[in-house]
């Protein structure tokens, strides 16, 4: 049995996913714009990988769109990850540093 959700239901659920509360607030427009901006930014970032090989860029852009549709709305998760808690910042710094070292040592 497939989903019986109509497109309307999917769009409604998507919009309500931004705020668990009233469906309007002074930050609502920000969340909506932020979601769209993030999608485009991540697609552009994925396209960057064409610098290594063009097929990689194409695959990543398609992968990003698919992942985005699955995980949306991602702005809430992004806001949560943006916390200034030291443990969270340190976690991202370690990841970051590992990526930097991996990419640069790859250049050897």
């Amino acid at each position: 049995m497939g989903s019986i959700d109509s497109l309307y239901d999917k769009v409604k659920r998507y919009l309500l996913g931004f705020n668990r509360g009233k469906a309007y607030s002074s930050s609502m427009s920000g969340y909506m714009s932020g979601e769209l901006q993030t999608l485009v930014f991540i697609m552009v970032l994925a396209a960057f990988f064409r610098l290594f090989t063009i097929p990689l860029g194409i695959v990543l852009v398609i992968g990003v769109v698919a992942a985005f549709l699955y995980f949306t709305p991602i702005i809430v998760a992004m806001e949560r990850e943006n916390s200034s808690d030291l443990n969270r910042v340190l976690f991202w710094v370690v990841i970051y540093f590992a990526v930097i070292m991996a990419i640069t040592l790859w250049g050897l």
Binding site: S27, I75, N82
Partner: peptide, 12 residues
């Protein structure tokens, strides 16, 4: 650039 400007959108 991306993270900064998106987070700016969310602030009240």
């Amino acid at each position: 650039m991306m993270v900064g400007v998106v987070m700016a959108l969310l602030q009240t």
